[in-house]
Design a protein around this nucleic acid. Structure first.
Lengths: 201, 201
DNA sequence: GTCTATATGCAGATAGAC
DNA sequence: GTCTATCTGCATATAGAC
């Protein structure tokens, strides 16, 4: 961690905004410069190439997506509270960054190798803790047996998916952007129960 | 439906392949021409602009994503069988078109207005039928009350999501592309039970 | 209808003044 | 460090021969 110049930060923030909306190949250096209130040449001065700038943004964005979840999942909380906490926090977080999921999926789709820029296996320990909890419930007959990988994916899918298909929600269900917020609130209330019920034997 | 020239079809198929992998802004007309085994000028002869070609591909791709689901959901099958059928068919279908979800999400992210190219509200009737089924179960106490919109989204999320984050699965869970198929098969077996259980009261 | 050759425009990147 | 001006390359698109 070196001392970062204010201008550099300014550019990075602008780049974040533009790249998240347009994606790496759709973004224009000119637009980023304008957003940052500086000249385009300055972007190259600080970051060299567009690709380098895009990678910096991707790293930062990717590191934001999951860690909070593993923290909760790996904690000592009872299962029901883990579910409640993850759903609540995660939807709340994504409300403030609605473009993040679509951006990450787009980038990974265009260049799957970028997944390597994600932290390698950040959650093996957390996953093991979760699996233990699930196994205990299965043994005493209160829970259906399930692998932690599937359970986690199931939970996270239902949280993230609406953000990924937001424009479609309008066409399919008539949920316009003005009603999206209310729709999310409904999910925030109903999802924990849905997930808990799914686990019960 | 006019008679389509063979060359035109050939180009459309090639375009489908390339656009699904690279996205509209990432795709190159040159690459499409090569894939189709024709000259680049011919693409313009048949489709005018890249954007027009991209739109044609998007329309075709989008019309493939959902209709099968609504057909099943709107049928007279009992709920359990609907779930089983949708999960099974949908995962089976996406196995043959693993890039489709990532492509559509990317395109919608880059240009949300494109959602308008989707068929408008194809499933209101199907949705109503499903809601009725859910309400009946809730009234006789066998099911938890839930809105059909949420239920459908929940089910579809869990089916599609793994395809959207496939490159991440390797990094997070160590599921490489060689193991992805087995992972899908596991989900195909376990998801219906998970979903049925979630609905039970 | 299909090709080769070429025009056009634009975006990323550099040179160099201040 | 920050700017203006410019180069370079590439991708879309067109012209025109066959």
């Amino acid at each position: 961690m070196e001392t970062e110049s204010a201008t550099r930060e300014q550019i990075l923030t602008a780049a974040h905004t533009v790249f998240l909306r347009r994606g790496t190949s759709g973004a224009r250096m000119q637009e980023i410069a304008k957003e940052a209130g500086v000249n385009q040449a300055l972007l190259h001065y600080y970051f060299g190439t567009k690709q380098a700038l895009a990678d910096a943004v991707f790293r930062a964005a990717a590191s934001n997506l999951l860690p909070g979840v593993f923290e909760v999942v790996g904690s000592a909380l009872p299962l029901d509270q883990k579910i409640q906490t993850v759903v609540d926090r995660y939807i709340g977080f994504l409300r403030t960054r609605p473009y993040l999921p679509g951006y990450l999926v787009s980038e990974l789709h265009a260049d799957p190798d970028r997944a390597a820029l994600l932290l390698p296996r950040p959650g093996v320990a957390a996953l093991a803790a979760l699996q233990q909890q699930l196994d205990a419930g299965a043994e005493n007959g209160t829970l259906q047996p399930i692998r932690a990988e599937h359970f986690l994916i199931n939970m996270v899918s239902m949280i993230i998916f609406p953000f990924l298909i937001r424009p479609m929600l309008d066409v399919i269900f008539g949920i316009g952007s003005d009603q999206f917020d209310a729709y999310l609130t409904e999910r925030q209330r109903s999802l924990p129960g849905f997930i808990r019920s799914a686990l019960r034997s």
